[in-house]
């Protein structure tokens, strides 16, 4: 943990807490940007089935990746 020793707050966290913090920050970035993108698509995009399908694929893949990542953290936690 030598790299984080000089950073306040982060130096108090253990590996699991650090991973969850990273995951939550990523999830929040995903959530905020997705809301903005969804608004753009619905408001400005020419509404058609391709666009709705694209949006659906975007959310499904993002949720799968985030889900697997959370699962990997849980397993990492179990082995910690």
């Amino acid at each position: 943990m030598t790299l984080l020793q000089n950073i306040p707050f982060l130096n108090t966290l253990n590996s699991i807490q650090l991973l969850w913090l990273l995951w939550i920050v990523t999830f929040l970035i995903f959530l905020i940007l997705s809301m903005v993108l969804s608004y753009q698509w619905r408001h400005y995009g020419v509404q058609n089935s391709n666009l709705r399908f694209g949006e659906f694929i975007y959310y499904i893949i993002a949720i799968i990746i985030l889900g697997f990542s959370a699962l990997a953290i849980l397993i990492y936690n179990a082995h910690f």
């Binding site: 991973l19 990523t26 970035i29 990746i65 985030l66 990542s69």
Partner: peptide, 10 residues
């Protein structure tokens, strides 16, 4: 795997 998942999401 968990770090790679976070990276891929971004």
């Amino acid at each position: 795997l968990s770090l790679y998942g976070i990276w891929l999401t971004l």
